[in-house]
Design a protein around this nucleic acid. Structure first.
Lengths: 167, 167
DNA sequence: ATAAACTTTCATTTATTTTTGAAAGTTTAA
DNA sequence: TTAAACTTTCAAAAATAAATGAAAGTTTAT
């Protein structure tokens, strides 16, 4: 396989993966492109390589920066902006985990707490509802706490997890 | 909050969450509904409660069964089919993790292996590509293995993880 | 101040995903 | 068998999400 072909395949695959994870295809593709680029990339280059419009590039780069996994860079003497992706994978995973916890898990926990707190009257139906949502709340809370703890390690958290867990 | 309201809120929230995870809204809503139902639920009831068409209900129930997190049940003397969700949360999480590993991680690993195996010629660009995709392959492989190990525990894997990790 | 170089915004268009509903298929009982 | 009770399928319609591109906005150099 030639380099260009490999690069394209990687970008496409990463993009397809993104859309199964609630991230839009272009956003994931841009991220893939930046991750395998040795040098910072301009918006013009992103548009060119992925064949997308200026607006699309701009909006998705912004979204990636909001996630904290893509950075703007300025080159001295250059007017335009360049972009690089977080390339450290431990760091990348930690940022994604934290962001998703904040955006999705925390709000879900709030709702679970609310709905599991209704006073169940005598019906089996209501008792089961309260029981099940309470279990769900406990489970998700525990999982979120584990995630917190794991990501606190930052460097090499995955390796540390392997070591701890395989014992 | 009244029971009906709480139930509805739960179903809606779970549905919204689903769509951020690449699962369609209705599928997640059906799952939510079944999870908090004490008794097996007929397709008619699913249609009625979620206000969806017969075709939609049928297709999404099928998809949930393909994931192995919803089961068909037959009541003696009843012609129609009833459905229940996996209610054990450890088991549910394990099934989801395994299915996603199979559907998403494994194929991605295959591609990563492929693209990281090109012979990089002298350019910095190509060397960086091979280096980065190799790191990615190693990382994802390690993560997938940890997931495997964790889900082997099945019962109480989360609790066991907490215990192991907090030490 | 002015203009060139560049980025962002957002109404509109385009593409993708989901839903519908009626026809076809299946199972069971008589 | 036949027909009633139920489920599945799938082409078409509807809903949703993403992309475009031109105008508006911003920054920098002169």
């Amino acid at each position: 396989m030639k380099f260009k072909e490999a690069k394209n395949k990687f970008v496409q695959t990463w993009g397809a993966l993104g859309s199964q994870w609630g991230i839009n295809k272009t956003m994931a593709q841009i991220h893939a492109l930046l991750m395998v680029s040795a040098e910072p990339v301009s918006m013009e280059d992103v548009m060119e390589e992925l064949q997308i419009s200026r607006g699309n590039a701009s909006m998705n780069l912004r979204a990636l920066m909001d996630w904290g996994i893509v950075y703007k860079e300025y080159k001295t003497g250059e007017r335009r902006e360049f972009f690089t992706a977080e390339k450290d994978l431990d760091e990348l995973a930690v940022k994604i985990a934290r962001e998703r916890s904040k955006r999705e898990i925390k709000p879900a926990l709030k709702v679970l707490k609310e709905v599991s707190s209704i006073t169940a009257n005598q019906t089996e139906e209501e008792k089961h509802f309260v029981d099940q949502t309470t279990k769900l709340y406990d489970f998700v809370l525990k999982a979120d706490n584990v995630l917190d703890k794991i990501t606190e390690y930052k460097d090499n958290w995955l390796t540390k997890l392997v070591v701890k867990f395989m014992k």
